[in-house]
Structure formats: C-alpha cells, structure tokens
C-alpha cells in the first residue's frame, strides 16, 4: 500500500515494520484469545447455551422476528422519504411562514433521542395504533427529518446556473424544482439514502423499549429462558446477522458513490447530517 504519510520502506524500515507487526499481532491475538478464554472459563461455550439454535421452532421464530424487523425498517424508510420530501420542500420554500415551521419540525425530530420518541408515541397512542405502528411512526419521524436534510443538501448542491437558466426560459418555481432541480439531485443523494437505510434498520431494534414482536423480542424470550440464560451468545448471533445485512448495504452505497464519481458527479456528504 502506498500512502502520502510514509515512504516506500527501505531495508531498515522493513525490518522495523516486521518487528512492530509481529509484536502487534501477538498483542492483538493475545487480547482476542484472552476474551475468548474468559468466555470459555465462564461456561459460554457449553452445549446448553447453544442448544436453542439447533431447535427448528426457535429458528423459525427468529426468522419471523427478523422478517418483521425488515418490514418495519422498509415501511418506515418509504414513509420517511415522503415525510422528508415534504419538509425539505417546505424548508426550501421562499415563504417564511412555510420554511420556519418546517425547519423547526426537522430540527426537533433530529434532536430527540429516537427511543424516547418511540416510548412517548407508545404511551400516547399505543392503545389505538399498536406496537408495530408506534415503532414505524417513530422511525418515520426521525429518519424523515434526516432525509429532509439530505434532500435539501442535494437540491442546494445543484449548480445555480441550472435554476437561473430554468427561470430565464420562463419556468415557475414549482416547475424548476420538479423538472430541473429534483431529477439532478436524486442521483447525488442516492448513496446517502442507502446509508440512511442502514441507520433505519439498526434503529428498528429500539422497539425493545415497547416490546414489538421483532427479532430482538424473540431473542429476549430465548436468553431470558432460565434453561439457556445465554444473552452473550444470542447477542453475538444477532450481531452477525445485522453485520451481514448492513455491511452489504454500506458496500452498495460505496459502489453507487464510486459510479457517480466516475461520471464526474459528487455525492451528498452524509456523515454530518445523520447522527449515528
């Protein structure tokens, strides 16, 4: 690997790198081994802890929970896009009576912790909406607010000459947005939108506070069972599933961004709009 931070190593530096590499490998391997050893010492790798994963009924319940998790995330992100588009348009409006309230709503839902919002919605309207829709509603409000900022950044990033030319040929404000700005903004926003899907999927697990019947709840039924009592193992299995899904989505976002770059377009920087 070449980097501007260091030179191509000569013979002396190579020897030094090798020494550091050996030492750090030993330290890191020791660290990982130590954690595994402690887990082993405390009976985390006994058959009983892993037994539920051999039970077809348990696995089926987990799969059903995962499906519900995915569905909640998908429904929420679709609704959030509508919410985001409406409030981004509101915030970009020239009318203050429209742009100020939109900005207030967007900033509010970005500042409130999502788990608190979900709990509040549940205590307020949980009786009529049910747990699933309280979760989806919370996810929609938060991710919608973030998406509104992404959409706004995308539209603002379109070169000014574009809208000026559109006005010059006599298009109206609505037409400029619909026909000129929005189509050009969409491609720049795509990587950011995919990254936001990862956030939404991770945040679906916050349903734990209102016990939605998602994969976390199924997992909780397993590790709270006194026969298993295996929160670490169940947690690790959940982590593996989420990492596989989210890592693929992140890679997709990077791929889309690279393709944009190769066409000479710039993607919207997502990192500072979305919190984690």
């Amino acid at each position: 690997m070449s980097s501007v931070l260091f030179d191509v190593p000569g013979p002396k530096a190579r020897a030094r790198y090798r020494a550091v590499a050996v030492v750090s490998t030993l330290v890191l391997a020791g660290l990982i081994g130590w954690v595994l050893w402690i887990l082993y010492q405390n009976d985390q790798f006994t058959e009983a802890k892993w037994q539920p994963f051999t039970d077809a009924a348990v696995l089926r319940n987990l799969a059903q929970g995962l499906l519900l998790t995915l569905r909640a995330a998908a429904v929420a992100i679709l609704l959030a896009m509508v919410f985001g588009a409406v409030f981004a348009a509101g915030r970009l409006s020239d009318h203050r009576w429209l742009s100020w309230p939109s900005a207030l709503v967007v900033e509010f839902f970005r500042a409130v912790p999502l788990i608190l919002l979900i709990l509040f919605l549940f205590l307020l309207v949980g009786g009529t909406l049910g747990r699933f829709w309280c979760l989806v509603l919370g996810l929609m409000l938060y991710n919608g607010a973030v998406l509104a900022e992404i959409f706004r950044a995308g539209v603002t990033a379109v070169p000014r000459g574009q809208s000026e030319a559109a006005y010059a040929i006599g298009l109206r404000k609505g037409q400029v947005m619909r026909m000129i700005l929005a189509p050009q903004a969409v491609s720049a926003m795509l990587p950011a939108i995919i990254s936001q899907c990862v956030v939404a999927l991770k945040d679906t697990t916050l349903g734990i506070i209102i016990s939605t019947e998602d994969v976390i709840n199924t997992a909780r039924l397993i590790y709270n069972d006194f026969r298993y009592n295996n929160a670490i193992i169940v947690g690790l299995m959940l982590a593996v599933v989420f990492i596989i899904i989210n890592y693929s989505l992140s890679k997709l976002a990077v791929y889309v961004e690279r393709r944009l770059a190769s066409r000479g377009e710039r993607a919207v920087d997502h990192s500072q709009i979305a919190s984690v």
Partner: peptide
C-alpha cells in the same frame, strides 16, 4: 458500526 447499539 454495523451492529445495532441495542444488540451491543
């Protein structure tokens, strides 16, 4: 980064 905080 890809593990939900709740799982952690």
């Amino acid at each position: 980064r890809n593990t939900p905080l709740v799982v952690l």
